[in-house]
Computed example of a mutant assay.
Amino acid sequence: MQQPAPVYTDPRTVYLHIPFCTNKCYYCDFNSYVLKGQPVRDYLDALEREMEATVKRTPPAAIETFFVGGGTPTVLLPDQMEHFLRLVRTYFPDRADDCEFTMEANPGTTDPEKLAAMFEGGVNRISFGVQTFDQGLLERIGRIHNVDDVYRSLENARAAGFRNLSIDLMFGLPGQTIGQMEDSLDKALRLDLQHYSIYALKIEENTLFHTLYERNQLPLPEEEDELGMYLLTMEKLKANGYAQYEISNFAKPGRESRHNLAYWQNRSYYGLGAGAHGYIGGRRHVNIKGITPFIEATRQGLPRLEENPVPREEAMEDFMMVSLRVLEGVSDADFRAQFGVSLTEVFGSLLDRLAGEGLLEADGYRWKLTERGLLFGNEVFAEFIGTLS
């Protein structure tokens, strides 16, 4: 039997949110704001106040993973980047020897000077939001980088010393064909990166794409074509030596995103910045989203929009929903380590039903998605919502 995932009473994972972007992509519903005219230094000062209050309330142990998301964190100027990373080092100084420190980046926003500041500040993994290698599609989804920016940014990152690089790709984009997806995959794989995240487009409310969709003005691929893109993705990544370790993520051995795995193991984590989510001491919180309201709130204390305890039954449901995303599945040992009871004791009848429907399968003491379940993951996860309440 495999050893259970580590269970800590204190968080070993830190998420930090930089909410600024050069522009708003047409599909994006993240808590992000166009950079021009924003009080960046005031925001960083507010982030420092939140860090100080947070570590005073919950002192950190040795941190195993950091993730800086956005927005586009790499829109920070080199001196702002140095200042930001110095703050992180100040308030989270104790780090595991193999600490993973990821920063999201947009191609074209990482010149050598900024990359040097990132590398010297402790960042050792970059995730570039490429989305597609088709220039026409990039323009159609509101991205402002071009394909040449992708190659130049990766070349600069390697020259700066980065050896753990990932890119995001999307499929199911408006007007996208299976042929275009295959071309993007081929170009991406020729880069020989350590990690690829490949997601289906999701139409979110409060986005331009949602408005166009409601007007029937968004020419999305047919469902069978979108499924074909996903099947093609799995086939090509596997053929090129990448393990699919999660529904949308592929990595070379040992290069999985350990930060995201902490989420999928339902572990505690610090969430810092405007609109950030956190999970500490059995309580989930979400921060105030607006830039100015966030800044002002940090002058009074922690900038919480909501903070609520997670009942044990809900935590069990959450555990199943996130852990089943990982293709390795969820083991009885993992579940028992967190909750003190066996997985089958709590969810046995539901697991048996989903297995009977061909969506889950038992592999020793571990339950995981079948090949069919992989294609209907959201439906499987939804089965656990409210099961115990």
Results as ranks from 00 to 15, higher is better:
residue 119 F to K: 15
residue 165 L to Y: 10
residue 113 E to T: 14
residue 128 F to H: 03
residue 175 G to Q: 07
residue 148 D to S: 14
residue 125 R to S: 05
residue 140 R to T: 15
residue 177 T to W: 10
residue 175 G to P: 04
residue 126 I to C: 02
residue 138 L to H: 04
residue 159 A to F: 01
residue 133 F to M: 14
residue 117 A to D: 02
residue 150 V to H: 06
residue 156 N to R: 12
residue 123 V to Q: 01
residue 172 G to H: 10
residue 168 D to R: 10
residue 148 D to A: 15
residue 125 R to W: 03
residue 169 L to G: 06
residue 122 G to L: 11
residue 119 F to E: 06
residue 115 L to K: 04
residue 132 T to I: 03
residue 107 P to V: 11
residue 172 G to R: 03
residue 137 L to Q: 14
residue 115 L to E: 08
residue 132 T to P: 01
residue 127 S to H: 02
residue 147 V to P: 01
residue 172 G to S: 12
residue 115 L to N: 06
residue 146 N to S: 13
residue 130 V to T: 13
residue 156 N to T: 00
residue 113 E to C: 06
residue 106 N to D: 15
residue 155 E to C: 02
residue 157 A to P: 06
residue 112 P to G: 11
residue 174 P to H: 12
residue 150 V to E: 09
residue 139 E to T: 13
residue 140 R to F: 00
residue 111 D to G: 15
residue 145 H to M: 09
residue 175 G to R: 08
residue 141 I to S: 07
residue 112 P to T: 09
residue 142 G to N: 12
residue 177 T to Q: 09
residue 177 T to Y: 11
residue 175 G to V: 04
residue 106 N to P: 01
residue 119 F to T: 00
residue 122 G to R: 06
residue 177 T to K: 07
residue 114 K to A: 07
residue 151 Y to P: 00
residue 152 R to I: 13
residue 132 T to N: 02
residue 121 G to H: 07
residue 124 N to A: 03
residue 158 R to Y: 08
residue 158 R to Q: 15
residue 121 G to Y: 06
residue 118 M to W: 04
residue 145 H to A: 13
residue 177 T to A: 14
residue 151 Y to R: 08
residue 122 G to Q: 06
residue 170 M to I: 15
residue 142 G to P: 12
residue 107 P to T: 09
residue 146 N to P: 00
residue 138 L to W: 08
residue 133 F to A: 07
residue 148 D to F: 02
residue 152 R to Y: 01
residue 125 R to P: 01
residue 109 T to Q: 05
residue 141 I to Y: 11
residue 164 N to C: 10
residue 142 G to Y: 14
residue 154 L to I: 15
residue 141 I to Q: 08
residue 150 V to D: 05
residue 142 G to L: 11
residue 159 A to H: 06
residue 144 I to S: 13
residue 112 P to Q: 12
residue 164 N to D: 15
residue 145 H to E: 13
residue 134 D to F: 00
residue 110 T to I: 09
residue 124 N to M: 04
residue 150 V to G: 09
residue 132 T to A: 13
residue 125 R to A: 07
residue 176 Q to M: 12
residue 150 V to W: 07
residue 127 S to W: 01
residue 143 R to D: 11
residue 147 V to S: 04
residue 126 I to M: 11
residue 176 Q to P: 04
residue 110 T to Q: 02
residue 166 S to F: 01
residue 137 L to C: 01
residue 177 T to E: 13
residue 149 D to W: 07
residue 176 Q to C: 05
residue 170 M to Y: 10
residue 114 K to V: 01
residue 148 D to T: 12
residue 145 H to T: 05
residue 127 S to R: 01
residue 107 P to F: 11
